[in-house]
Design a protein around this nucleic acid. Structure first.
Lengths: 210, 210
DNA sequence: TTAAGTTTGTGCCCTTTGTTACTGTGGATT
DNA sequence: AATCCACAGTAACAAAGGGCACAAACTTAA
């Protein structure tokens, strides 16, 4: 765990902080597809992502979903932090997109470190900034772009995050992430296939050139 | 200025911090409708809102707009903070919705105070949290709701923020905020009028019961 | 092998939202 | 009074996206 922590966070965190994280944090290895945080849950620790990717999504009262953004190596979930600090229930759901390694840090420590370590403060700050910017991107996407473009962006991001040119999802799953219907996604994917940007197969999509 | 600062921020800030703000901050009185921050600008100070309301909006490349949220008394713009800290250009535009009083604090001070004052640190964090939550609301709104509901929400919020049951805007202005066209807004407003929820007049809308 | 379930393709129609174009109206200007 | 102009109302049409139904293809289990 020490090596992985250093590899990912050495640039941000001072040595004593690394030591404290090693002492207080709990390492978790989570396979892809697990829900590690759900809407309405109370949260007592925040995740530092050592490797892999986590997708963060929002749900409304009727159970309709929407992908907000992915967390990648070295990142943490500011929305979760916000919930921790405010002692409120989680506003989001987090699902591992790939196999991941996560260090879970208890909330009390995170508050303590805020006063104690400059590196931690900067990191937390930077996280908030990144999350705000990602959310702005998300807003842009749903407000200003049409579904064709959103789908292409989604596929690109997926390739980047999973580091795999084959997207192993059903059309229905993609539809959930983009908050639309399976039929619509099938239609748009077919259009992209005709444009030679990808090839459709059963249970996976081969990305050619987006 | 001292009284206004105390009235708004006394619960958050310790006395020496208040004194520093008085010393370093610049008081601005801005009439309604002024752009106090624009997309692409570099930002060297962050605003603390003493009274009034500011609307914060996003714009895409084609100049299409979308209202993100309002800032009210005691709040500050975290997106602006994020830009300051990251030394990047503003991602948003801020326009005074009503007449406002604002204290502008230079960025360097704000960073200095982060280490020095617990109250400031908490305030800044809480601001980020509020902004994140507001943005999530915005995402919900545009992702999950249809225009009818978004318009009603918009009008409600406007009444709350301006503290006035008459909304003094043209249909075109409302259309810009919701990123749609004037014709569509006129249509929906007419529908709401038929439902006795409001009365349409030239240049203003009388809210009856939303 | 047969049956059942999952995934994808597609046609048809509906709703929501956006666009264009034209009309009317009240206020301001000359 | 004549003119101009910003604002609002409305009809007609277009486009994007969603819903339903059904077929086809493939997978898994019995």
């Amino acid at each position: 765990m020490r090596e992985e922590l250093l590899a990912t966070f050495n640039d941000y965190f001072e040595q004593p902080l690394i030591d404290e994280i090693l002492e207080e944090g709990k390492l978790m290895e989570v396979p892809a597809g697990e829900t590690i945080m759900d809407i309405g849950q109370y949260i007592r620790s925040i995740p530092l992502l050592l490797s892999g990717a986590i997708k963060v999504l929002r749900e409304d009262e009727e159970g309709d979903e929407l992908l907000l953004y992915y967390l990648e190596q070295g990142e943490t979930c500011s929305v979760t932090m916000a919930c921790c600090m405010g002692q409120t229930k989680s506003e989001i759901r987090a699902i591992t997109e790939t196999d991941t390694k996560i260090v879970m840090v208890p909330v009390q420590k995170m508050e303590e470190w805020m006063g104690k370590y400059r590196g931690w403060r900067n990191y937390v700050f930077e996280s908030y900034q990144n999350r705000l910017n990602e959310l702005l991107q998300t807003v842009d996407s749903i407000a200003f772009k049409n579904l064709d473009q959103r789908l292409v962006d989604y596929l690109k991001k997926k390739v980047e995050v999973t580091n795999d040119n084959q997207i192993r999802n059903t059309h229905q799953e993609i539809a959930y992430d983009l908050h639309t219907s399976r039929v619509v996604i099938s239609r748009l994917l077919k259009k992209l296939e005709k444009m030679k940007k990808l090839e459709l197969h059963r249970n996976y999509i081969q990305i050619v050139d987006l």
